[in-house]
């Protein structure tokens, strides 16, 4: 398929009509009496020269329009998915897994998540990904894209010191809304990375249930558990209150199970745990995926300018070889060459 960089230049194309109307070779003041006797070979030359002039101009104009040829982007089959990464940007993500400010020995939860998610993005070349951050409010950090450098740049920003709260419910609602119709054939997944959970208000729960059912995205929760924090799978000890306020993580897990989508929760207590969970997600979300691949771009300008050169050289040659007919022996008619 041919694409133009500057299509407006084509407005000059009517210039190519000029050679068809005006001959480049001089009209002779005197009609050549011998023209009628000229060889038949010369007869077709006039129209040919006109066409050559038109070709030269058209080729120059087309070349100036910046054409390049590239195969139309091809649809290929790879493995991958459309992924929404939902990342907690609350302040506690900047603490280490031990719940302290990271020193040289250990990294913060956010830094570990950043490092491992970047690897994850590297390993999945065909995925389309979006990045959602959440704290007090959900933020669409990067809409769905297949541009990996942008995804990596959005993930690179997640270890910046974060904000205060953890509004996980609305962040999930945002993530579900990111899958558009174009991703209908693809596997869809949401990867929620957080080190805590908030209470998902009832109205958000009610909004999430139909969204999840409609989008059919599988859901992974990677819970970065701080040492000493209660696990998401751990039932409360007898006598301990079992409410969303007391155990938000456990109750978020219970709610996500009720969403009716394929769901898995991973609890990681250190960077190795995070790596294992991400490897597991990588394995699970490897389904056939259609993706587009752009063909290489070949500029056509030089080719067209070459064509114009050839046409002009042919015109020049015709002009230089264009001799008046030899003077006819009879009569006093004098044809002066180059007078």
């Amino acid at each position: 398929m041919i694409t133009l960089d500057h299509p407006l230049v084509l407005l000059l194309l009517p210039l190519a009509l000029v050679p068809l109307l005006v001959p480049l070779l001089p009209a002779r003041a005197q009609p050549a009496l011998g023209a009628a006797d000229a060889g038949r070979a010369g007869r077709g030359l006039g129209p040919t020269l006109r066409v050559l002039g038109a070709v030269a101009i058209a080729a120059l104009v087309a070349g100036l329009a910046g054409p390049w040829w590239g195969r139309a982007s091809q649809v290929r089959v790879g493995t991958g998915a459309h992924l929404a990464l939902v990342i907690d940007r609350s302040l506690s993500m900047n603490d280490s897994f031990a719940g302290r400010t990271p020193d040289g020995q250990n990294e913060s939860k956010a830094a570990a998540a950043k490092r491992l998610l970047t690897d994850f993005v590297h390993r999945r070349p065909h995925d389309r990904m979006a990045v959602v951050g959440f704290s007090t409010a959900p933020m669409l950090l990067l809409p769905m894209t297949d541009h990996k450098p942008a995804v990596e740049a959005a993930i690179a920003a997640i270890d910046e010191p974060g904000l205060s709260k953890t509004d996980v419910g609305r962040a999930l609602a945002m993530a579900f809304s990111l899958f558009d119709d174009s991703s209908e054939d693809a596997a869809r997944a949401i990867v929620l990375v957080s080190d805590g959970a908030g209470i998902v208000p009832r109205e958000v729960q009610e909004a999430l249930l139909p969204m999840a059912a409609r989008q059919g995205a599988s859901l992974y929760w990677l819970y970065l558990r701080t040492r000493g924090a209660k696990g998401i799978f751990q039932p409360p000890a007898p006598g301990e209150p079992d409410t969303a306020q007391a155990r938000p993580e456990r109750h978020l897990n219970l709610f996500l199970k009720r969403l009716g989508v394929p769901y898995r929760a991973f609890e990681a207590e250190d960077p190795e745990g995070v790596a294992q969970a991400i490897a597991e997600i990588d394995k699970l979300e490897a389904k056939p995926l259609l993706y587009r691949e752009e063909g290489p771009r070949r500029p056509l300008g030089s080719l067209l300018f070459g064509l114009a050169t050839a046409a002009i050289i042919a015109l020049l040659a015709a002009r230089l070889l264009d001799r008046p007919l030899p003077p006819l022996p009879r009569g006093a008619l004098i044809l002066e060459d180059d007078a």
């Binding site: 940007r89 951050g133 933020m139 950090l141 990067l142 541009h147 450098p149 942008a150 740049a153 959005a154 690179a156 920003a157 910046e160 904000l163």
Partner: peptide, 11 residues
Amino acid sequence: LTFIEPVEVCE
């Protein structure tokens, strides 16, 4: 709050 760290603009 940074959303996207600097990336090449054309690509």
